[in-house]
Design a protein around this nucleic acid. Structure first.
Length: 573
DNA sequence: GGGTTGGTACCCTGAAACGAACGCGTTTC
């Protein structure tokens, strides 16, 4: 089951959205709901284990919020929310999911055009029904259609953390079913793709019936799409399809290999089998002539019989891994255990929700050797950072006794449209390390975007370019730039590029990591954590880095601190 | 609505980009 924290946070967010739509609340009240939702989602304790006093301890959760949380825990619903839902035009919230469409326009559209879904709105615009509607010109119509296209491109796909949570819940539940001999996540989720269309789960049992029955009876299953002895598909309440396949344990390896994919990788592996007069299927590796089963028990056996070492799932995309495997030159991929530090994190001094001490304690729990605090710099005005606050934080960072963990004081700078950052060199020299990121001007022409990133790389005090593509999966496309030119500048100047682990960023993406690595770029795999809860996201960054073939030598925060300091020092005058 | 400060009053991202409309509302970071 999802944590009650996540459920309640979603309800409070919905409340905030509904308040925005009705216009029945001032902006501060709306923001109060948003802030409370974020704080509850990020809170380290499970709220269902807390009493009212405990819930009231959560930052930004006061009397009114506590009452609503308690009401939900007691009754499973929040009356205020239920009432609001009945007063809002149906579909208005759905329309707000379109990037570029806020509460005001969404309400106007539902009322004036009588549309209740994204599809109906698209049809209405195509039919010219927007013409003459005050506040909606030709350009707005275009923008809405473009937003709808963005939304549809990601339709049916979910972020990797959502898919992971669903998959792990199901694996845990089914592994307890009597007769379940083995169970694993397969498919694109096992390969750590950055968005997931459906979840594939493979189990082994002599009799599949109990597993299939348990799967269909899961609380998370809102619809059974199809069901048979080898495969059952369900849909979750949120519309995510989950497929369960059950095979005999003897076929486990062949089946896991087959259902992990990718399709392109499997085609290449099968070609190798055919050339060797073998036949590979989800049931095993067979002699093509006699039909005799050769191996099928483990993935390692299957690959080995084909003359290949076991290939990590994150590499299985037919991007050269077969050739590398044949040459026995698969890269020693970086793992979470290799990371010695995190170089991009926030605290509640800016938009984080956990205080410095809590973040540091969580870093120690992760077993890190060093940890950079990189709160936002002043030019991102909404964060209300000042030079004085930054210096005060530095004093605090320097004064904390953290045992074996070395704290680094850093900042996340803002790259302005021409590539400048918040402070001059004299002040920047006081930081141990800096990240610089694009937070605005996402639609500049490619040439300007390229120049701005190159200029940021050329800054002697910029060590890491944070989330370089600045995309938000499903909400904002990546910025347009000549990436090869950026990679050359990063490599030449000794500037690392970030692999941001946040599930909606996953930035750089695997394809660009591969390209950048070929040009000699170094990387930093960071959480960008705004809460202690976000530390776990590092696994998604690691998965992405593996998909980009990264090894310890490529990743500056997998290096000993002395080597990292030398990397920073080499760039400075 | 939450939080701080002072004991009830006050503050809380602010600004840029964009487009529709010509001074302004909406959306986004």
């Amino acid at each position: 089951m999802p944590r009650a924290n996540d459920t309640v946070a979603a309800l409070l967010e919905e409340l905030a959205d509904l308040l925005a739509v009705t216009g029945g609340a001032d902006s501060f009240k709306i923001r109060a709901y948003d802030k409370a939702a974020r704080a509850i989602a990020a809170y380290h304790e499970d709220i269902s284990t807390l009493d009212a006093a405990g819930i009231g301890q959560i930052p930004n959760v006061g009397k009114s919020m506590t009452a609503k949380v308690v009401e939900y825990l007691d009754t499973g619903a929040i009356r205020t929310l239920e009432e609001l839902r009945t007063r809002i035009p149906p579909g208005a919230l759905k329309l707000m999911e379109i990037p570029g469409l806020g509460p005001k326009k969404a309400v106007t559209l539902t009322k004036e055009l009588d549309v209740a879904s994204v599809d109906e709105l698209a049809a209405a615009i195509e039919a010219g029904r927007l013409d003459g509607l005050p506040g909606f010109g030709a350009k707005t119509a275009d923008n809405i259609l473009h937003g709808i296209e963005l939304l549809r491109r990601n339709e049916g796909r979910v972020l990797i953390d959502t898919a992971t949570a669903v998959a792990e819940e199901i694996v845990t539940a089914l592994s307890r079913v009597p007769g379940c001999e083995s169970i694993s996540i397969a498919g694109s989720l096992r390969r750590f793709r950055d968005s997931i269309g459906d979840v594939d789960i493979l189990a082994a049992a002599a009799d599949s019936a109990p597993l299939m029955a348990a799967f269909k009876a899961l609380p998370i299953a809102s619809e059974v799409i199809g069901s048979g002895p080898t495969k059952t598909s369900i849909r979750t309440r949120r519309g995510l399809q989950v497929d369960l396949r059950v095979v005999p344990i003897e076929a486990w390896g062949a089946a896991l290999q087959y259902f992990t994919g990718s399709k392109a990788h499997n085609i290449r592996v099968r070609e190798i089998a055919v050339h060797a007069k073998l036949k590979l299927s989800e049931y095993g590796l067979f002699d093509a002539e006699t039909g005799e089963l050769l191996v099928s028990r483990t993935e390692e056996e299957v690959y080995e019989r084909l003359g290949l070492p076991w290939i990590p799932p994150t590499l299985r995309e037919d991007r050269g891994e077969i050739e590398a495997a044949l040459r026995r030159e698969l890269p020693p991929l970086i793992t979470e255990a290799d990371l010695r530090g995190d170089l991009h994190t926030h605290t509640d001094l800016t938009d984080g929700v956990s205080p410095l001490e809590k973040m540091v304690a969580a870093a120690i729990d992760r077993g890190l050797e060093y940890y950079a605090v990189t709160d936002h710099a002043p030019n991102l005005v909404m964060q209300r950072m000042t030079t004085e606050k930054m210096l005060a934080q530095r004093d605090l960072v320097r004064s904390l006794d953290t045992g074996s963990l070395t704290l680094l004081h850093g900042t996340e700078l803002n790259i302005d449209p021409i590539g400048q950052v918040d402070w001059d060199g004299d002040f920047l020299a006081g930081f141990d390390i800096t990240v610089a990121s694009v937070h605005s001007h996402f639609t500049l022409p490619s040439q300007e975007q390229t120049q701005r990133l190159i200029r940021a790389c050329e800054n002697a005090y910029v060590n890491i370019i944070g989330h370089p593509r600045a995309r938000m999966i499903g909400r904002r496309p990546p910025i347009d730039a000549d990436w090869d030119a950026v990679f050359e500048a990063a490599a030449a100047t000794g500037t690392a590029l970030e692999v941001n682990s946040f599930p909606d960023r996953m930035d750089l993406s695997d394809d660009l990591i591969l390209r950048a690595k070929r040009r000699g770029v170094k990387f930093a795999i960071d959480t960008d954590a705004h809460s202690t809860r976000h530390m776990r996201n590092i696994r998604f960054g690691i998965g992405t880095a593996q998909r980009g073939w990264l090894t310890v030598d490529d990743v500056i925060n997998a290096w000993p601190l002395a080597r990292l300091r030398a990397f920073v020092g080499a760039k400075r005058p």
